[in-house]
Design a protein around this nucleic acid. Sequence first.
DNA 1: GCATCTGATGCAATCGATTACATCGCTGCA
DNA 2: TGCAGCGATGTAATCGATTGCATCAGATGC
Lengths: 343, 343
Amino acid sequence: MTARFPNIGDVATAAGVSTATVSRVLSAPDRVSEATRAIVIRAIEETGYRINHAARNLRRRQAGGIVVLVPNLANPFFSQILSGITSAMATSGYNVLIADTRHAGDADHRIADYLHNNRSDGLIVLDAQLPPDVLSAGETAARRPPIVFACEWLDDDPRPTVTIDNFEGARLAVDHLADLGHRSIGHLTGPPDNVLTIARARGTRAALAARNLTVREDWFFEGDFSLASGAALAVHWLALSERPSAVFCASDAMACGFIGALHQRGVSVPDDVSVVGFDDIEIAAHFVPSLTTIAQPRALIGETAARTLLALLENGRTTDVATSVSQTLPVRLVARESSAPPR
Amino acid sequence: MTARFPNIGDVATAAGVSTATVSRVLSAPDRVSEATRAIVIRAIEETGYRINHAARNLRRRQAGGIVVLVPNLANPFFSQILSGITSAMATSGYNVLIADTRHAGDADHRIADYLHNNRSDGLIVLDAQLPPDVLSAGETAARRPPIVFACEWLDDDPRPTVTIDNFEGARLAVDHLADLGHRSIGHLTGPPDNVLTIARARGTRAALAARNLTVREDWFFEGDFSLASGAALAVHWLALSERPSAVFCASDAMACGFIGALHQRGVSVPDDVSVVGFDDIEIAAHFVPSLTTIAQPRALIGETAARTLLALLENGRTTDVATSVSQTLPVRLVARESSAPPR
DNA sequence: GCATCTGATGCAATCGATTACATCGCTGCA
DNA sequence: TGCAGCGATGTAATCGATTGCATCAGATGC
């Protein structure tokens, strides 16, 4: 019914060459004489030929795409990392599939499916809390596409990882508050088994200790990085008989939720309590009050992860060098209105 | 070097049947006797067989995925729509590719590539401001995969579109402010050639007129939906000799940017000026002050668009019915702290 | 002038799943 | 008994690009 799309054979006929030559013009232009190449390119344009990726991928025994496993697409923190990934992947020829690991529709078997070679050529994993059997570097790993971890990581895992220095970030936050004169500092954490939570909480404890400030367990509140959890923890904080004069939140979202809920209850930031966030998401600079936070180079994290994966893929095609590098990107403190000297 | 993955032939051998039967178990289970089906399924499990999508797509002459064109991945407004789309697509077998149309890496030719049938089986377009030749329903359209527009649309375009009632949303916002007693109401718009901008501005003007309130052109400010533009327009607003007592912003992001910048300059919301946003993004409820806004059913928009596209794809396979429906989803006002009676 | 080499190109097998068509065995009816 | 009909299954062509190997023309060397 509908006219067939031109295929490589049609181009070959139009150019008066064989399909092999057309294919070479597409994938290895150097192996074709300049004159022939020009003719073929013209024929491609005239026929309106578009390469059929399914056929190419089948023959090349590849999937043609990489998959990004992200814990929560709706979190603006991740969208900018995705931006960096897609930007770095744009010219590579690989498709970028994004899968929300916490999403109902994306059941476990679906994720496991992505881990299979003929579904994707590689993965960037932003969620290290997936079931261990899914991510383990175990025996079936040979059948799996290469994985690059970003933001989160698995302890003692040899695979390449792109992270920031979370420990240092927490130290910067606590030092900043201590420098302002705060002696009582609380901390809102992420989910307890999360590596980021652990690293940031350790950094917080270490920095407090280094400043000779007491580490009070009842000033550590367990959240989950979300706006809602920050708001919920504000209620717990208000219920304390003795409240810290400053709170370091393990994410900007929690910080915003926390400040918002305090505001609803007539508690003012930074007058009544100073707040420092983590991430420097876009809203941080515009929040009321604007949010002091630890900035992560989000786009750079994404780009770096993507480039590392591309290198792995390239490597896999040629030699079998085990490219395993861990890259730690810098964080910095951005001081804004939400932190001030205690009253 | 690496052991080959089991293919459909290996499964056939293991089960003692032909590849055709295995294929039928996979794609048309009804056409295989129950006994054989059980044997084949066992063989699939034993061999660890995974279907090769490249081969299937090649044979079926399809791309195996749909593409979502989104103007800005980093905007949280879109991420929830994407959530809805991926959720509705999860069980369909189609991959979901996300392309950021405003992103440097995604040049025009790349987008045009997606518009070609053998690159994607269908598109969901959230950005109606792409170059007209890219989206036009013109002569080459037959060679193109079906398109569903969502959020934004092209006027007089026959293709299916999922939107909300922007005109009504603007009316709700203005009526709310008028009900509170505001007689002078300004409006921050999106980019001037955007359909949403136009519809919301028309709704604003109509509602003002219906209330016998003057429509003052110097109280209409041109933004671009972003946080930064909201902040920039706050400066312009402050420069007015006569300021409206309320401002309706065409996006929550602009509203937050606007309020944040006013706060920096000592102007308080809602005491000095009431603000209403549009979208009800997650932060709206947690902002300081919490933001009165027009809520859009974001996940539902995504799901509806996805389902419409799936219906189109299904249709295309059987009959050639021109499925062309426009669906308008409801909006509602969420009153919060940022709007109050004028002083 | 002839053998050899090199670069360009063509031939044809191949990747793995699907599906039109053929086949086979069985039931049921005349 | 014979044959149509039907459900289940097998055979083999097919989708479109890639690539190992063969071929060929022209250049180079002796």
